[in-house]
């Protein structure tokens, strides 16, 4: 085969800079989206386990809606459709004034989508505890918020560390979809290097190694955390 291998391309400028910048955007998109996903997802997950039918209904509706539309379509909805259905002033602001439009849209879209998945994990974590603890909390005279704060959540979150870890890694991988609306994250950066240098093997290999190393590192670290925080007498589990 007439292919000229040149691994040095990966450490030469400007290509190394592109890789690092792309990696930076990947981290930025994933962490910001995770912040939204974790906060909103936890809230929704708790809502789905409360005794209020309305709150449960809202939580379920959210999950069904966001989980059943492909993430890519959601990116397009936020980027193309959302500004058009806003009132004129707001529409103009989103289209023209909003800082970092592609990044912001990617974070919102990815965060809201992942919230639906986090919600399911949090719900299953709380449900796994069983009704006895809730009843015990009530008998102790705890209010519902207190039951969650002191009884259900501390245990629930510890149970769902493994599934939450894999949700975080999913966000990390899904952040690559941001390239479809113009964020030059890691995958886009390597594609750009391929385009410029015609060294596709080298560029794609770099991205592959970076994604794998991060994934395995996070998994390793979380396994330690999981071991340290395991609630005696429980098994870790997650929603299917």
């Amino acid at each position: 085969m007439n292919y000229n291998w040149d691994w040095s391309i990966l450490v030469s400028e400007p290509y190394m800079g592109w890789l690092l910048q792309g990696f930076g955007w990947t981290i930025a998109v994933s962490s910001a989206a995770w912040l939204i996903a974790f906060t909103l997802g936890s809230t929704l997950g708790i809502m789905r386990t409360t005794e209020s039918r309305l709150l449960r209904w809202i939580g379920t509706g959210y999950v069904e809606l966001f989980r059943n539309v492909p993430l890519l379509v959601q990116f397009f909805l936020w980027f193309f459709v959302f500004p058009e259905i806003l009132p004129d002033d707001a529409s103009r602001w989103v289209k023209r004034e909003m800082p970092l439009p592609a990044f912001t849209t990617a974070v919102v879209a990815l965060g809201l989508y992942t919230a639906s998945r986090v919600c399911e994990q949090v719900r299953s974590g709380i449900e796994a505890i069983g009704p006895g603890q809730r009843a015990a909390g009530k008998a102790m005279g705890f209010s519902e918020p207190q039951i969650y704060r002191y009884v259900l959540l501390p245990v629930g979150y510890r149970i769902i560390i493994p599934p939450l870890t894999s949700e975080f890694l999913t966000v990390f991988k899904n952040s690559s979809l941001a390239l479809t609306i113009g964020v030059i994250e890691l995958t886009a950066a390597t594609r750009q290097i391929e385009e410029y240098t015609f060294q596709g093997f080298e560029a794609f290999t770099a991205a592959t190694v970076i994604y794998s190393v991060i994934t395995f590192a996070v998994m390793g670290a979380m396994r330690v955390v999981e071991r340290r925080t395991r609630v005696p007498g429980t098994v870790a589990l997650g929603a299917k």
Partner: peptide, 22 residues
């Protein structure tokens, strides 16, 4: 299994789009 599960699908699509003809 672990390798493929650590990669974004988009990257895998790009890889094979490049590799299969090769």
């Amino acid at each position: 299994t672990n390798f493929f599960r650590s990669l974004p699908l988009i990257l895998v699509i790009f890889w094979f789009y490049f590799l299969v003809p090769l």
